[in-house]
Nucleic acid binder design. Structure first.
Lengths: 157, 157
DNA sequence: CTCATCTCAGTCAGACTGACATTC
DNA sequence: CGAATGTCAGTCGGACTGAGATGA
């Protein structure tokens, strides 16, 4: 029936970096499907989440918090504005900045995406019990936290 | 001194899929640097590893074992041949197939890359002690193993 | 002057798709 | 015939780079 499970070289299965990449690809597929089916483009979820949790922000702030490049934030915010999820207004006190504000329909959208993403996590983490899940999250977070400080934003050229 | 650590939305830090993706990006950067500095192109390491561990194989086999698409295997093997790391000969018993064989210099190359990649793992896993590292590897592997069976190769159209 | 912000244009690696010829 | 293999051409999401304009 199945056309060979096909062994993976031990050199790969022993490398955390390889496991991370492979799993990230799978998780990406699932998330992409889930978001696409909900009519959301890439980057929308993190952006909406940041706005919901920290309130109106500049685009640069959004990028730093979600670890998304400034230039990609521009495009995503354009799409979010066009979709009515956020509003973009000029900051009166610092006229370089745009203030991005979550709208009611943006908050609603976030709710939907929250559910979809939760379903993805459930599927992804199916093989683990509850304590293992928190264990995994903890380990991953510690790794990420360690190598996060130096690049809050693009360094000034 | 540091220009704001900038809080990440909890909705992201709580999502395994997000942590995996973010960490995979970091790990990818490190590996890319390490491999590039050793004059190796993407996909080389997995391919060489598979050949070293399982002996001469067809390209399709290599792709299945390393989870690399057939068409990408073609390009990578071309480069590996040009670099003298492998040899490509026609399979006498099944003339659709190419048999890819590791050369001495390919094995040597693999040794170098092994060291570089090991260094990457060390840097990546620095925040964890030994038992935590094996714990992490174990958890990741279990997640990956669960969602691996269905796609040994592209399904026939 | 220096630095941050926003924006656009474009690059780049990597995963994947479609199609085709060949051989089993 | 159907299925597998190797190959090529091209797509696509996503991370990132460079440069320019504006304003603090």
């Amino acid at each position: 029936m199945n056309p060979s499970p096909d062994q993976v070289p031990e050199r790969l299965t022993a490398k955390t970096s390889w496991l991370l990449k492979e799993l990230a690809v799978q998780a990406g597929r699932l998330s992409h499907e889930a978001f696409g089916a909900a009519g959301a483009k890439p980057y929308w979820y993190p952006l909406l989440a940041a706005l919901a949790e920290f309130g109106p922000s500049s685009q640069a702030e959004l990028g730093r918090r979600c670890r998304i490049d400034r230039s990609d934030v521009v495009a995503a915010v354009n799409a979010l504005v066009a979709d009515g999820c956020v509003e973009r207004t000029a900051d009166p006190v610092d006229r370089r900045r745009n203030v991005i504000t979550l709208t009611a329909s943006g908050r609603e959208r976030l709710g939907v995406l929250d559910e979809r993403l939760a379903a993805v996590q459930r599927e992804l983490l199916a093989p683990l019990d509850t304590s293992e899940r928190t264990q995994l999250t903890d380990l991953l977070w510690r790794l990420l936290a360690e190598r996060t400080p130096e690049r809050g934003d693009r360094p000034a050229p």
